[in-house]
């Protein structure tokens, strides 16, 4: 028994040190964000510094376009997620409930799009957006983002629809509605959890995106928050405080959403491959 206790204590010690390594950078950002302006850069390592203040947050909101950046990101992200989820919800229903010519090859095509690295298509997308005169607009970003999460969303939603028993739709159809009515009245309301997970996945991947935004947006008013933070961190070292404050403000909600949804995301990632 004593040996077992010692083992548990050792495991706790190992995990505590791992957890500290994982959380430490976040706590450092917090520390920097509440440092007083004249000591933003310092070799001090205390969690709550002397003379802690929210000055950096005030400065961030007043002197930069931070709120505008958040607004830009929000418009772009919500629109892409809505387009992505609505397209995926019907396509996934087709894959879940019907057998049709070309189904298998379409599924394989969906999976193989995951093999095309996203970074590879930035160049042609950039040139297309330039040709359509949509540089530096929300619309250009939305077009570039809207289908990137589509295959994955279809995949999760199909998996979820598969778990809904067919008898429910059949009951609805006996009551006199067609497939479309059954889909609209029975399947969609029942799959609200899966739809929200697909929405969250679309949302976070577009919300955190950086590389496409870097080449499409070029005036600092149109920036998404990722570009804005990069700019704050890159320009002058004096803006570390504001960078940290901005990071805290974006990270906290993202962290909460992620912790809430991670369980489903992981099962979505492994579902297709395990059940093959």
């Amino acid at each position: 028994m004593k040996r077992e206790t010692a083992k548990q204590i050792l495991i706790h010690l190992a995990l505590i040190s791992a957890a500290i390594i994982c959380v430490y950078p976040l706590s450092r950002i917090f520390t920097v964000s509440i440092r007083p302006g004249d000591r933003v850069i310092s070799t001090d390592l205390a969690l709550i510094p002397d003379g802690a203040t929210f000055l950096s947050y005030m400065k961030l909101l007043k002197e930069t376009y931070f709120l505008r950046w958040l607004f830009n990101s929000l418009v772009i992200t919500v629109t892409t997620s809505m387009i992505g989820v609505s397209l995926a919800s019907t396509a996934a229903y087709a894959f879940s409930r019907f057998n049709f010519f070309g189904k298998k090859s379409a599924m394989i095509m969906l999976l193989s799009t995951q093999m095309i690295p996203a970074g590879m298509l930035i160049l042609p997308l950039f040139l297309m957006i330039m040709k359509m005169n949509l540089m530096n607009t929300y619309l250009g970003m939305i077009i570039a983002y809207s289908v990137s999460s589509l295959p994955f969303s279809i995949w999760i939603l199909k998996g979820y629809y598969d778990t809904i028993p067919k008898s429910l739709e059949e009951a609805a159809m006996v009551d006199g509605t067609g497939y479309v009515g059954a889909f609209w009245r029975v399947i969609l309301p029942l799959s609200a959890p899966a739809l929200s997970i697909a929405f969250l996945f679309n949302f976070t991947s577009a919300w955190n995106e950086y590389l496409v935004a870097r080449v499409v947006l070029f005036s600092s008013k149109q920036y998404t928050w990722t570009l804005g933070l990069f700019e704050l961190q890159g320009q002058f070292i004096t803006q570390w405080g504001m960078f940290a404050a901005g990071s805290m403000l974006v990270t906290i909600p993202v962290l909460l959403v992620f912790l809430y949804s991670s369980k489903w995301l992981v099962s979505g990632l492994t579902l297709g491959s395990v059940k093959g």
Binding site: V23, N208, Y210, S247, V250, V254, L255, F258, S262
Partner: peptide, 11 residues
């Protein structure tokens, strides 16, 4: 332990 994965990568 999942904090590094959950944080926005840019941050």
């Amino acid at each position: 332990l999942v904090v590094p994965w959950a944080m926005p990568q840019v941050v």
